[in-house]
Amino acid sequence: MAKPTDRKQPVRMMIAGVLAWIVAIVFALKFGATGGSDPEIVAQIRLPRVILASAVGMGLSVAGATLQALFANPLCEPYTLGISSGAALGAVIGVALGLEMSMAGLAGSAFLGALVFAFVLYLIASRTRSASMSLLLAGVVMGFFGSSLVALWMALADSSGVQGAMLWLMGDLSRARPGGSVFTFTAVLILALMVWSRWRALDAFLMGEDTAGSLGVSVSAVRRRLVIILSLLIGLCVSAAGMIGFVGLVVPHFARRQCGSVHLGLLPACAVWGAAVLVLADLVARVAARPYELPVGVVTALVGTPLFMWMILRRGRDVT
């Protein structure tokens, strides 16, 4: 029987992603703010940073693709839905409570912040039966609300810490430490696998919740579980690297165009391409304005915006 769709395309996309990731890692280990390749610098500074960038890129891309399916809206991602702001707010509250010294403490408070914001979205989705625009508007407004509270904290805080907090909010991978990076990478990998195991339900969600229910998915139970897993994932990423936008939006769109929307192939492709993109973005952030370092969130936004515009225009031309 002839196979109607090319099932090898996601595999090719994965292989290309892994190659891109490896190339990005090699360059990221070779080049840095100092320019040299001292083994000590590579092992203690660049390698943890590469591992953390890979983890965060992977986590945000998988979270973006999953949120888009879960709420059947291609504009959803941790940043646009305000969940990143919730995680940042949680992390800031954690700092205010003196938890910044402990990686687990900070990640835990960021997770709680993400969870509260994600559950508000979940309740709105349940009440509006996933009316996409209401959900997105609610997410944008909550994002503003979270960011405003973080800004309020910065306005009232000791001014010496404000610049560091600002950099962290714009995306900052410089705090990567060997042990913490491996912990974050392992946790992100496990959470991404937990999301991946629900690929069939995510496929069904693309068609809206009524259809998903009719296809045999327990809509509220699956959505509840995934909201908890995604809150953990986003909380981890934000507590480790601050708010990095666009990766969760651009990478899933790019992967979908290349290998379709079946999550069995899409999520692994998002994971490896997300990791490759953020390692590369961090490399640019480190070397573009040497000896200064740019916030990696600024790099992803500066590159991601025109790229996303081009993708939208190209898609529009294809459809018409």
């Binding site: 069904a204 809206g208 229910g213 045999g216 379709g260 929307s261």
Partner: peptide
């Protein structure tokens, strides 16, 4: 099985994959 009058088409999906969703259960 409940079948609505139209299907959402925001995401790139082939007709084959859309029908394959019927086998999800």
């Amino acid at each position: 099985v409940y079948v609505s009058q139209d299907m959402r088409a925001e995401f790139p999906l082939t007709a084959y994959d859309a029908v394959m969703m019927g086998r999800l259960c």
